[in-house]
Amino acid sequence: MADVQANGLRFHVQHLRGGRASTDRPTVVLLHGLVLDNLSSLYYTLAPPIARAGFDVLLYDQRGHGMSDGAPTGYDVDTAVDDLAAVLKACGVTGPVHLLGNSYGGLIALHAAYLHPESVASLILVEGQCLDPAHSGLRPAAGGYPGGWVEDVANTLNLIAIGLECNPLGGDLGSRGARKAARMRAGADTLLNQTTLIEDISTVRLLTPGELAQVKCPTLALYGGASDLVDSGPMLAGQLPDCTLEIFPGAAHALLRDAPKELLASVLRWLETHSPAAPQFTGSAGGYRLPASGGEGAP
């Protein structure tokens, strides 16, 4: 399966099969980060070993990213959750899923678990910033991030957007490497200067402590010890009812690059311990078997 129509757009999807063992286990859905990211960063790292461990794995390019359709609007987290629900439905995934989100994908995953708790078996948040430090009771100790992650990201994207606008085609287009760089710049330029992405990101509403308390599914929060976001880990773990925090010393925000083996080991361990084995059929009159899927309504 390469493309599905969902929420009015064509999404590029990769669905890796986990074999027989995956039949009664939740599908693992992987959500990538913003702008220069797409499903390939997860496809080359986490997806194959998770599939080999016996899980179906679903990846897709977010709207405007990778090989999915572009869209002028809809880069807010609520639309992203709607996109997720529509993609899962289009792919026939109906039961609760394990949601793994990297960076902004983590924010989408957390909102999906808040809005559709019945559809999420567990959350794995890789360097996801999901807290508003300006909220009373959440401000970190002195030295934390005073402006908040959303503001930082919006500011950074604005600077990149201005740079692209002022110098849309740099370099010598005669070489292949330059053409590739130009394609990447053109993609980023389109997203940043011709869509509402920056505006949408800057107005993202983060969950309040009261809302976080309602996210009851098991959550694994993973951070790099050298990441700017590491302070938010203990805060998030303190707000979510069932959150396990792991920090990888020395790694920065890009955990997929900085600590790929350690990250994979943690994810596989988590999936194994949070994926109930299929109930045994006893063959007696009292034997039972749970349905393979857990109801309608994808997240």
């Binding site: 390469a2 590029h12 990769q14 797409n38 499903l39 390939s40 960063s41 496809y43 080359y44 390019d61 990778g66 090989m67 292949r176 490497g177 053409r179 590739k180 394609r183 990447m184």
Partner: peptide
Amino acid sequence: NEDLAVESIEFVA
């Protein structure tokens, strides 16, 4: 990557 400038996402395809 170097000679053909195939992007990561194109290699997935």
